[in-house]
Design a protein around this nucleic acid. Structure first.
Lengths: 208, 208
DNA sequence: ACGAGATTTCAAAAACTTCTGAAAATAACG
DNA sequence: CGTTATTTTCAGAAGTTTTTGAAATCTCGT
């Protein structure tokens, strides 16, 4: 009846550790905008040594075939797991990238591509809407409006529009610059083959 | 009747630019795990010069009072906007942090605190479950378990489990180290008063 | 201490996301 | 080819998050 408590670290303990890890990773995933199941599958593949097939995943995590199939495909698209074919076996197997630096680089690469770049493009468009320089039609707007002593308004939009547009542009530009900076930083990290990231770590320790 | 097309960049254009900005920021927010409305309110406050009150926000973004109230409070909790009291006015006004570096620092600080640290704690717990050194109870486990010939199940685990636990620990440790590294990086960035981030930007340009 | 105005709370509704399961498509083998 | 194993797709179900609005609570000024 009783479980053998003799074995150093029992299979049960390993199983438990895996399950807890999977749960933790799944939770983290969901707070960062990734579906829980997808993160859990990734966790399972990462923490497990051998490659697993769709049925293994379904069984282990109790998810439907459809869900497993779509999540696995999405993970492949993100480049954090890969398909493996075994001869004499019609099933497909999956295996996680096991180098965590490569994994991180891949995640950053994809987030830049899918999320940051589109937003940057939008923000540039927005910038153009009020860009004085681009005001080819209408009339070119002087960057600096005349005298700058402003009577502080009462409620929200108080003054007779002293220079709302200039203020808008200033704020937008500062945000654009920040995001572009982060983008360049990311691209650099992502670009440099292999070493790139460890380099960042090194830098980190340097900046006392 | 017709709108004056003479003014350089019309109020309408400003309004449009604001709306587009708000939409873009709202979208970005939702892909990063922040509710759309919350991100939109932040965008509105950021892009608008003066402080706004709850009714301004409700009106401008067409959201309910309850939603506006909760989202504003959440933004205050995140430390990216602040409450403003005006004498002789019973309403509360809100204003966004306008320095984007400070804003970024604040966001990183909170994400570390709310999301990274809890996961790190969980991962450490998981690590302990299979830590040979920590096996005080039971029996100290030799890093390499004796002869471990186990009848292999059917599919996934092919080899005779030479050292599943050691492999598990290796993977878990590499992930833990990565996350801790990022955590330290974040803390450092967040900690250094003001300059911290620009410094990072400088570093960035240095790393050719 | 009252009352008017402002804010917060929270249960229920709406909107959105994820998951399922069976049917359709695909690929492998003989 | 036809048969069979496997994967993909997708409409609807289930689950989760977000939003609403009205009631409760709070805050001041008098």
């Amino acid at each position: 009846m009783a479980r053998r408590s003799q074995r150093p670290i029992s299979d049960g303990a390993l199983r438990l550790a895996q399950d807890r890890f999977i749960a933790a990773w799944g939770q983290m995933g969901s707070t960062w905008g990734i579906s829980r199941t997808m993160a859990e599958i990734h966790a399972l593949l990462f923490i497990t040594a051998g490659p697993l097939n769709t049925d293994d995943v379904m069984l282990r995590l109790s998810v439907s075939r459809g869900n497993a199939s779509m999540s696995l495909r999405a993970l492949v698209d993100w480049g954090v797991i890969s398909r493996i074919h075994r001869r004499g076996d019609r099933k497909e197997y999956f295996q996680a990238e096991e180098d965590v630096w490569t994994m991180l680089r891949q995640i950053i690469r994809e987030r830049l591509r899918r999320e940051v770049h589109p937003v940057l493009a939008l923000l540039f468009e927005v910038r153009d809407l009020t860009d004085p320089a681009a005001a080819a039609h209408d009339k070119p707007v002087p960057l600096d409006p005349p005298a700058a002593g402003e009577p502080l308004p009462s409620t929200p939009e108080p003054a007779p529009l002293p220079n709302l547009v200039a203020e808008h542009n200033r704020r937008l530009d500062s945000l654009l610059e920040l995001i572009q900076m982060l983008d360049r930083l990311g691209e650099r990290f992502v670009g440099s083959e292999g070493r790139g990231l460890k380099l960042a770590a090194t830098l980190l320790s340097k900046v006392s």
